[in-house]
């Protein structure tokens, strides 16, 4: 395991995932300490009908307060935010969240690329992007945008992913700062801004 994975000055950690990512999140989120002056935003592909279930599941399993996102929700540190299904999630310069129903990107709405790119523009080097399990290519372009804007990018080790295609694609086409298993991702999150 690599040392010196200390990230400082982080405002937002944005997490993307698709098929199989829920398992990983449920291994990580319940053991998370309080968030040190940063917020977590989760953008995962899910069916448009099961809207609230992910929020409820995280609330049940984790002590970190969870907020469902509505139009112009203000992003505050210390909270976990979950992108609603059937909308793209965008970030405004005044720390509010914006929703958009435009065309699906990578067959997905929310698209991870769209949210990652938008967050990268606003939070530049104070952003950490993490990509989890999935079976399409969504997320790779977004990670590249985060990296280009000076942020840190992390990819779940494909060996520990239920669906390794998405992390593999990201490793192939972006240059992740870290490729980590779930336990290591947890340690990384707990070390942020300490």
């Amino acid at each position: 395991m690599e040392e010196n994975k200390i990230i400082v000055n982080c405002k937002v950690v944005i997490i993307g995932g698709s098929a199989g990512s829920l398992n990983a999140l449920m291994q990580i989120l319940p053991s998370l300490n309080k968030l040190n002056n940063f917020a977590i935003v989760i953008v995962v592909h899910r069916k448009s009908t099961d809207d609230q279930t992910l929020e409820e599941l995280i609330t049940l399993k984790s002590s970190i307060p969870v907020k469902a996102i509505e139009d112009k929700t203000i992003l505050k540190s210390g909270f976990v935010y979950v992108a609603p299904s059937n909308y793209h999630l965008l970030f405004e310069k005044d720390d509010t969240l914006a929703l958009d129903t435009s065309e699906k990107i990578n067959y997905s709405r929310p698209s991870i690329d769209v949210s990652f790119e938008s967050a990268a523009e606003v939070y530049t080097d104070s952003l950490v992007g993490i990509l989890f399990s999935g079976s399409n290519t969504d997320g790779t372009q977004g990670l590249k945008a985060i990296k280009a804007a000076g942020g840190t990018i992390v990819v779940q080790n494909p060996l520990s992913a239920d669906m390794p295609f998405m992390p593999n694609n990201a490793i192939l086409f972006s240059s992740p700062d870290y490729v980590l298993n779930n336990k290591e991702i947890l340690d990384l999150l707990n070390s942020i801004n300490t």
Binding site: L90, E92, K93, A98, D100, S118, V122
Partner: peptide, 9 residues
């Protein structure tokens, strides 16, 4: 108009 979305469009 909200800028984040307008800019993408």
């Amino acid at each position: 108009y909200s800028r984040a979305s307008l800019k993408r469009r």
